[in-house]
Design a protein around this nucleic acid. Sequence first.
DNA 1: AACCCATGTCTAATCGTTTAGATGGCAAGA
DNA 2: TCTTGCCATCTAAACGATTAGACATGGGTT
Lengths: 348, 348
Amino acid sequence: MAVTLADVARRAGTSTAVVSYVMNNGPRPVAAATRDRVLAAAAELDYRPNRIARALRARTSGVVGLVLAGASNPYYAALGRHIEQELETRGKLTLFGNAAFAPDRQQQLIERFLAAQVDGLVIVSADGGHDVAARAAAAKVPAVYVHHRPAEARTPLVAADNATAVRSAVEHLRRHGHQHIAFLAGPDDAGPVGERRRAWHEALTSRPGPAPDAADEQAPVLLRSADEQAPVLLRCDYSRASAAALVHRLAAEDRLPRALIIATDEQAIGILAGASAIGLRIPEQLAVISLDGTPESAYTAPALSATRQPLEAMAHHAVNLLFVPTAEPFLPHAPLIPRRSCGCVPTG
Amino acid sequence: MAVTLADVARRAGTSTAVVSYVMNNGPRPVAAATRDRVLAAAAELDYRPNRIARALRARTSGVVGLVLAGASNPYYAALGRHIEQELETRGKLTLFGNAAFAPDRQQQLIERFLAAQVDGLVIVSADGGHDVAARAAAAKVPAVYVHHRPAEARTPLVAADNATAVRSAVEHLRRHGHQHIAFLAGPDDAGPVGERRRAWHEALTSRPGPAPDAADEQAPVLLRSADEQAPVLLRCDYSRASAAALVHRLAAEDRLPRALIIATDEQAIGILAGASAIGLRIPEQLAVISLDGTPESAYTAPALSATRQPLEAMAHHAVNLLFVPTAEPFLPHAPLIPRRSCGCVPTG
DNA sequence: AACCCATGTCTAATCGTTTAGATGGCAAGA
DNA sequence: TCTTGCCATCTAAACGATTAGACATGGGTT
């Protein structure tokens, strides 16, 4: 059906070997005259190599698997875009999978990617789930975790410096005159958001945050405030809807904080939407800083102040780690971008 | 290195053929006792089939190529997610590519996907560029266009009913008491946005909109208003930044309309951001309806009224068209979802 | 007893590449 | 003239699966 190497060889009057040598500036040289004949034949027949066959023989598919914890979250989505782009510049194709926050789907995707003989695996992981990359290691396929790595994993990780980012957010809100700075975390203290939550607590109390206890992590309560002075910790899951609902509830119960650090852009967008719906003015009545700083955060109403993770650099580095084994770990700084939502006026 | 069919066969004391028959409930039956032996051997060795080898021999890779015109646009992104999900339910893997609004990248991606022997191609296309699916047709690979199809293409298309959506938006704003309803289009009248623009003009003037003339399409002007009565057509490119800048400019020149239909969510989000930045109140000072209605539009501030394209159904249908040749065309209705931005109060 | 058929399994070709080893020709050095 | 070596090319064996055709076995018919 399709044009094959053999067709080209026949037309050029050579063996398939020389055609292959020509096509990939092969491991052996070819006489200039022959090369031209081959090239001409290939062009006339509109030959394009079958990558599947190449992959089978050369044991390298030129494809990298990218699995995203949840593709509808702007943070994961933006990371995914950058990783795909980075892979493209390296001439790799991207096999894409969305785990939709289900650890077993993540596992299954990786299984299938490995069966497809991917050359590498980029796992943009949420908390929860086991060390899915172990499978890749067993198959000697290079892998990288991005954003989060399960505790027991040995696979390299690329993630932003959460603690420093949180400290700068606290710092900044203090400079705006806020004393009581609440924090909106996820439903539990697992993963990077847990790190952020602990860093916030530490920054406010100037002493290490309490180790998360089981009761705390599983508690269905959304609001905790031991006494008037204690930092207020809010929780909701990672969805716009929950965050918007949370604003409604807090307002109804008159328990709104004056300043809030939000663990993720996804939640921050929900908070903004909820605030807008009930006429709560940001930043006048509630100052807000988010901790992802995805591109989306620049075009909310009002624009979100955020610590911006260098997603492009992270993507670059993650892909690097896949292919150059000597690459060193990467824990980039996420600078604070003051916009409107914290009380800063946009400059320019 | 990895466990192969031959390894399993050896261990089970059979030929590779029976192993293959067992693995895929093959074209031939296998005695129950033998089947059990094979299954046991496969389990013990942790055998997993090499899809590359299978693809080469069976001439079907189980992979479908998905190329997105621009992955950072919420509309394309949401569509992409649904398509990936739909493919997953059919047991297909998704080879993902982002054309980033460059027609040549789109072409190149398709080229590479075909080389990778994809079983099908879903092309979520923006306007511009040639009939890239022609290449797929030549290779006898099924393809579908989603959202937009180049004029000369014969490949099936899945896209929402733009005209009806626009009419319902105009209708709705009129019911809010608006007479002068402006429209924010893209930089030219190509593609679906052109359709929307023409439908808007027709709805306002009750006669067919002017055929786009070359001068109009290429014109760098962003605002056109022939006389006080004529519909006001705004243009800017498909980015949040441009849309936000447009609001600034219009406000500075005191030429803001009172009601505006926006061609895409991407632009609508920019408009909202720009409005928020200059203190322009929506919907009080400017009523707005967007025409994509992606999930994002529900969580803007204020929430965007929009005609919601049934992205999930579209994805389902697109994938269907790939695999069942008899599937009929699909031009779904995009119902109007009134939210805050048009002046409606959210119910509940 | 000879034949037929069904059943279960094996052998081996095949998919389209890549690439190590064999081959043949020609120029330079002895 | 006879090596020696190099260069360009060819032959053919992989890669790991699928699957048509051959084959062997063991009833059931006549």
